Simulated scan of single mutants.
Amino acid sequence: MKKTSKIYIAGHKGMVGSAIWNALKKNGYDNLIGKTSKELDLKNQIAVREFFNVEKPDVVIDAAARVGGIMANSTYPFTFLMENMQIQNNLIDTALQQDVSKFIFLGSSCIYPKLAPQPLHEDCLLTSSLEPTNEWYAIAKISGVKACEAIRKQYGKDFVSLMPTNLYGPNDNFDLQTSHVLPAMIRKFHEAKLNGNESVTLWGSGTPMREFLHVEDLAEAVVFAVENTFEENLYNVGTGVDLTIKALAELIQKTVGHQGEIIWDSSKPDGTPRKLMDVSKMAKQGWKATIALEDGIRSTYDWFLEHAHSYKEVKI
C-alpha cells in the first residue's frame, strides 16, 4: 500500500478510530479521510454513496459502531442490532460498488458462542448459541463478517475482518450507564477514592475471565492489515492472556489508589464465563500485541485524569 493511498476511517473520532488515525499518521500515511456523524450519517445509504462518489477512497476501515456494555445491550436491543447493521451494510456494499481495493471490518470477540471451547478460535463462529446479554450487537457483527467473506468468495476482493478482544485506552467511554467493564471500574474507583475511599460495588461474582487489548495495539494491527495481504477473511486480535474480573478490579484499584472495600453484587449477571482469544492466526501473519495490561491501565487512568474536567456523559 502506498503512503499516499487515500484511506477513509469510518468512526475516526471514537476510541478505536482515533487510535487508528494516529497510528497511520505515525507510520507515514498522510492522505486520511474522516467525517463526524454530524457530517455524514452512516445509517443513510444515499449519503454514504454520495460521499464515496466524491472522495473515492482506496482503503476503507470500518471502526464505526454503536457500542456499549451489558446494561446498554440489554436495554436497547433493537438499537444495537439495527444501527450496527445499517452502518456496516452501507459501508461494505458501497465499498464493493466503488471497487475499493481494501476493506477492513472491525468487530468483537462477542461474535463467538457463549460456551465455545477456550481459547476462542475463528472456526468456532456459529457453532452454538451466543451470550444473551450482547447477542444483538454480536448478530450485527456476524452479519458484517459474513458479508466480507461472501465478497471475497464471489468477487475475490481484499475484504478482511479483524475481531479484537475487549478494548480499552485513550478516548474510552467512562459513562457508567453505557461503558464496558474496565473504564467503568476506573471511574468507580476514582470517584470512590475522592469520596473518602468509600466501598465500590461491582456487578457479578468476579469469577469470569476476560482478556484486554490496548486500543493502540489494535491500531497497529490495523496498520499491519493495511500493509499486508491476508490469506483468509477472519482474524482474532488480542493478547492471548486473560485474568479474572476480580483480579482486574484489584489491579485497577491499586492503580487508582483506592483503599476501600470491593463489594460483589452476585444478583447481577456475569456474562460469558470466559473469553480468551486464540491469536495464533495473527501471529502466523507476523503480528502480536506489545502493551502490558498494567502499563495500559496506568496510561488510561492518566488520560482519564487529564480529561475528567471536560468529560461528558454518553447518551443512547
Score class of each variant (00 low, 15 high):
183 P>R: 10
114 K>I: 02
186 I>F: 06
174 F>D: 13
183 P>W: 12
115 L>E: 10
155 Y>S: 05
143 S>E: 09
89 N>P: 01
159 F>R: 00
143 S>K: 06
115 L>A: 09
142 I>H: 03
171 N>P: 03
185 M>N: 10
159 F>A: 05
134 N>V: 03
164 P>L: 07
117 P>D: 15
90 N>T: 01
92 I>E: 02
182 L>T: 14
147 A>D: 00
185 M>G: 12
138 A>I: 01
102 K>N: 03
107 G>E: 05
110 C>Y: 12
152 R>N: 06
180 H>A: 15
140 A>G: 09
184 A>K: 12
144 G>C: 01
126 L>G: 02
159 F>D: 02
175 D>R: 09
113 P>L: 01
108 S>D: 15
167 L>C: 07
96 L>C: 10
111 I>N: 06
123 D>I: 11
130 L>E: 15
92 I>V: 14
135 E>W: 04
146 K>D: 04
162 L>Q: 04
137 Y>I: 02
136 W>L: 01
114 K>A: 10
89 N>R: 02
115 L>W: 08
140 A>L: 01
163 M>F: 13
156 G>V: 01
174 F>V: 08
100 V>W: 09
91 L>S: 06
91 L>P: 06
109 S>C: 13
111 I>T: 12
156 G>W: 03
176 L>D: 04
120 L>A: 06
104 I>D: 13
175 D>G: 14
114 K>L: 06
182 L>I: 14
102 K>F: 02
161 S>F: 10
97 Q>L: 13
123 D>F: 07
135 E>Y: 03
179 S>P: 13
164 P>H: 09
118 Q>V: 06
119 P>T: 09
154 Q>D: 11
163 M>T: 15
96 L>T: 11
105 F>A: 03
